[in-house]
């Protein structure tokens, strides 16, 4: 779901980059030095996860998992996902340079939103199955919001993109389902095995 260079209008690029910059600054403020190793290693994990392909129909899709990133990293998901996208743009030529801000916003803003929504419930619940339900909801919603953002970015850039924007959304419904199921399974496991991970970014980082 990376938008390439050259497809968006200047207004969208500028607004998107400015909003991303704000998100990154907020995220960095929450990242104390004690949290940087954890954030860096988790950011690398999400980078690796984006290399995992799961079968879908006759083809396969790669994972985004921004819902999981939001749950585990909170606001730190902004800089962490920015770093992952920057590395992808520079070393793999996925996405583009001028659209980096917009792409970051599209992936990281839903992550943070979903994380803020679900975390209060996740931390309190003692049942792993319930945690899995929240995780699945977060994973699916994050992808839904991301596609919505991509569609909006395209739609604001030109009226002739309107149809494509709708198609992007419909085509991603199966991906929402898959990401939801995967996130549910991942959160179930984490809740059973290492529940501390769910509030990794809160220890000492809460200000």
């Amino acid at each position: 779901m990376h938008i390439v260079d050259g497809a968006l209008s200047n207004e969208v690029l500028i607004v998107g980059s400015a909003m991303s910059a704000v998100g990154i600054v907020v995220g960095l403020r929450k990242l104390t030095m004690d949290l940087i190793p954890a954030a860096g290693v988790l950011s690398a994990t999400f980078f690796v996860a984006s290399l995992i392909h799961v079968p879908l129909g006759f083809s396969s899709v790669h994972l985004i998992l921004n819902g999981l990133a939001g749950i585990i990293l909170g606001w730190a998901a902004f800089p962490a996902l920015f770093v992952a996208l920057l590395l992808q743009a520079v070393f793999f030529a996925f996405g583009g340079i001028s659209v980096l801000g917009v792409n970051t916003l599209n992936i990281a803003a839903p992550a943070v939103l979903v994380g803020l929504m679900v975390n209060p419930f996740l931390i309190r619940t003692t049942s792993s199955s319930l945690a899995a339900v929240f995780g699945g909801f977060a994973g699916a919603l994050a992808i839904a919001l991301t596609t919505l953002f991509v569609a909006l970015a395209l739609g604001f850039s030109g009226d002739n993109f309107a149809l494509q924007a709708k198609i992007v959304f419909v085509a991603h419904i199966p991906i929402m389902i898959i990401e939801g199921l995967l996130s549910a399974a991942a959160i179930y496991l984490i809740h059973k095995v290492k529940p501390e991970l769910l509030h990794a970014m809160n220890k000492g980082g809460a200000r």
Binding site: A38, V41, L42, T45, V48, I52, A186, L189, K194, L197
Partner: peptide
């Protein structure tokens, strides 16, 4: 479903191990 569940566990395990590593 089995595939999605297994890959989900894989991702979860990856996250746990990397957190412990960190």
């Amino acid at each position: 479903l089995h595939t999605y569940k297994s890959v989900g566990y894989l991702v979860g395990m990856l996250l746990i191990r990397s957190f412990e590593r960190s």
